[in-house]
Write a protein that binds this DNA or RNA. Structure first.
Lengths: 331, 331
DNA sequence: TTGTAGGCGTTATCAT
DNA sequence: ATGATAACGCCTACAA
């Protein structure tokens, strides 16, 4: 059987209450009994039962991280950021995903908010609506949404508009006038913000916006890029540059297809991606892209949530991080 | 305040014990009270407090997944496999990593084994020694190690030797006689098994093994590949093929460096990787490699651990999965 | 400084 | 079929 406070108490000739106090470093314990208790605890190799502790303190010391799906390198990188600055073992992270599960997102949120399994929630997602999220506020479960500005909850996100403007400005500066834009339907707000940045950049450079140059792809993968290339060519073969807010994998797909068709990148066609994933450096030419600070987002998220859980109102409700334009070879 | 069994009991005019029984679908409850209780529970939007339940049942309904580090795409893919066949919400996964933490691996294992936080453990790692792992058996915590054959605990892993033999055989069949091999020091058993497969293949094809053609790299990343290329050339410029058990990123690095130096792949130099990561399809020429069934490993791991936790002795103690040789363009 | 006692929300064992 | 009652292991007033 597992060793409990009571076991220690008996051998030390004290009460379990006393043992509890020394284990938790409470004041007003004589040095003598503290030493004795600690010694016995060590000998018995005592570890507190976190479940029992959780019940007593109404705190689970763990936070839930809800992700759309682990196949996204963006999500994984943010998760990595969360884990690596995880204030060392103070909080355990429990992982939940929202795709392919029996229960719907709202059901999951509701359950998490009420089961008292976690002390707070980090939500990495771009598609969930604000209404679905209010449950956390209603149940007063501390929560942070990552990757998307959120009116209802605190959030950490990137300046999508600015990043897109940087990219488009750069292409224009390079002399491009017919610039296509490829968005992704599975991303909600971020994609529209990026599209907006693209438009703003055109506008301030007095280039007319043409709706037919905006293309949409379903998922951020290479396949999509392969297919969309042809469509772009069909619509306007004079397109000399493509900005791909949909993500780097789509951009990579476009590059591959372009090369295959004998279109030289970047000479005949310039490509700029969004995100900066590892594969951006393996494609040739290497992908010029807008880097999102993913580790940093995770870092902010975990720090903000812990502050909230522990009642330190850091004051920051929303944290906007800046993108970084990474110039490589594809544009 | 959260609604509890007691709240429901009061309104239903029964005792919390009764409510508990209907919530848990126990028999011997009159249809009348069952209906009434369920109705009230629904109205009050009741969710059981999992912590309290855990204390009473001595079961947390969650499993711990210990990973070396989230930067590895191999690890992430296995994790994805675990999550996606996670028997729908029955068990929650808690994530632990072993790098960059205050506590050592053994400390973490000890803690997890004793804190009663989890019902079982999946360990994805290649470097941990068997001795460090026995703690789980000692504490009778169900556990599975993934990616490495383990004497002390149940495990699921791939046939590294066979995969390496496939790769080497293929290169030999293509006429190569001077084949270098690049291993990775951070991987323990798997790397040596692969090296062994390479040796066996040489042997049965009556090609002498040359120790100086075995190179070692620290990490599975592109940088390492970039650097090792030159070293290989220095040792023997007649090397016409390189088998890279260290991993696909290293293989990709080698390809990049080769192209940069004007060495044509696969004409002048054939490259075969190990793992099959997404980037294997973005490099040009696309990487020929030995695919590890990562999702499947995760799938087996979660199923085995759940069976063990629930006392179903599936009989399988060790599951060996087969690799698949993926022929693309680099060899 | 330490012990007593009660409670955290469930489950489980008896009775009834 | 349901109600008392006692765990589960820990924390926390309050009392001594």
């Amino acid at each position: 059987m597992a060793v409990t406070l009571k076991d220690i108490a008996e051998r030390a000739g004290v009460t379990s209450a006393t043992v509890s106090m020394v284990i938790n470093n409470k004041p007003n314990i004589s040095e003598a009994t503290r030493k004795k208790v600690l010694k016995i605890a060590g000998e018995l190799n005592y570890y507190p039962n976190v479940i029992a502790r959780g019940l007593a303190t109404r705190k689970s010391n763990s936070i839930g991280v809800i992700v759309p799906n682990l196949a996204s390198s963006f999500v994984v990188r943010v998760l990595q950021g969360i884990k690596s600055t995880n204030r060392d073992i103070e909080y355990t992270v429990q992982l939940f995903d929202t795709v392919g599960q029996k229960e719907s997102e709202s059901q999951l949120f509701q359950r998490l908010a009420r089961e008292r399994r976690i002390d707070g929630v980090i939500l990495i997602s771009s598609t969930v609506t604000d209404e679905e999220l209010v449950i956390f506020r209603e149940e007063s479960v501390p929560s942070i949404v990552v990757a998307r500005k959120c009116e209802e909850l605190d959030s950490v996100y990137v300046n999508n508009e600015g990043g897109a403007m940087d990219a488009t400005d750069y292409l224009i500066k390079k002399g491009h006038r017919t610039i296509a834009c490829v968005t992704c339907s599975k991303q909600g707000l971020p994609t529209s913000e990026r599209l907006n940045g693209y438009k703003l950049s055109l506008k301030r450079n007095t280039i007319p916006f043409r709706q037919e140059l905006v293309f949409e792809v379903e998922d951020d993968n290479m396949e999509s890029g392969l297919h969309i290339f042809e469509k772009i060519r069909e619509v306007d073969s004079s397109v000399s540059a493509i900005f791909v807010p949909a993500g780097d994998m789509v951009a990579i797909g476009i590059i591959k297809e372009a090369k295959k068709r004998g279109v030289k990148v970047p000479q005949d066609l310039a490509i700029v991606g969004f995100d900066d994933i590892p594969a951006a450096e393996v494609i040739e030419p290497e992908l010029t892209t807008v880097r999102q600070p993913k580790l940093e987002m995770g870092d902010y998220a975990i720090n903000m949530i812990v502050d909230k859980i522990e009642g330190r109102e850091s004051g920051v409700k929303h944290k906007e991080l800046q993108t970084q334009f990474i110039i490589r070879e594809s544009a």
